[in-house]
Design a protein around this nucleic acid. Structure first.
Lengths: 127, 127
DNA sequence: TATACTGTACATATACAGTATACAGAGGTG
DNA sequence: CACCTCTGTATACTGTATATGTACAGTATA
């Protein structure tokens, strides 16, 4: 389980878990049918309380990614990608721009940043 | 002052203010020497307490964007872009991927998303 | 000095994050 | 069946973060 948690970060741990797992789910690294580690197991690995992991699992279940059961634990659902409303670009443009501005403000070179964005854009075309 | 606040959002208001202003600062819409609205004024406009705005201003001052004084209020500093350490792409790659995954999960079409990323990348080249 | 404007400081109410602990459900094994 | 062991859940509790109310201090101007 490749999942780095930054205890210093302002974003809460449970959301770091959600974010990290969601990336794996969207990319397909976690495929339908796959089992996730038990909450106590993952909690031990990343050094938090198991309830914090459980909260993250519940959030992903709420989003439709996981199916949680008493014995089987958390499993990736067959119907992975939720059937949400297709949002307009304007809806998420601001959020991307805010993140980019934040990264730029931290001193990242615009050219390097642009390269990274193109790389991700290219990867997206594969879908 | 174009600054939309979403009271429903999970991200706290003061950080929405910081994020929104930082975009304007990085883009240059807020240039060195410009004065920001008084805390009570902006607070009235967006419908929050002025202390919440003050907290946002202090955060941006801490980042080196603003100079705050008793009479002059908050002004954009000459030395806008902070002299931070140039972070490696790997440092922020994960954060971008997390945001993109989140947007994808909400149902955004990858092609539309890729187009948006390229647009931002192109804009970055201008710097 | 009086006034009117800036941002600041501090106490408070409330919500959120993380943990400890006890619990309930499901399946295996004596 | 009784028991054990594994799963996630529920509740209570502590500390932190957010937003506000109120009082204050600094600064320019009439």
């Amino acid at each position: 389980m490749i999942l780095r948690i930054d205890a210093e970060s302002a974003t809460p741990v449970y959301r770091q878990i959600v974010d990290g797992l969601r990336v794996a789910l969207v990319k397909g690294d976690l495929a339908p049918g796959d089992s996730l580690p038990a909450v106590r197991r993952l909690a031990l690995d990343i050094g938090v309380h198991f309830n914090t992991v459980a909260q993250a699992y519940r959030e992903l279940a709420r989003e439709g990614w996981l199916h949680i059961s008493a014995r089987g634990g958390a499993q990736v659902k067959e119907r992975s990608m939720p059937v949400a409303s297709k949002p307009e670009a304007a809806t998420y443009r601001r959020r991307i721009e805010e993140l980019i501005a934040q990264i730029q403000a931290s001193g990242a070179a615009p050219s390097s940043l642009a390269r990274e964005l193109r790389r991700i854009a290219k990867a997206l075309e594969g879908f």
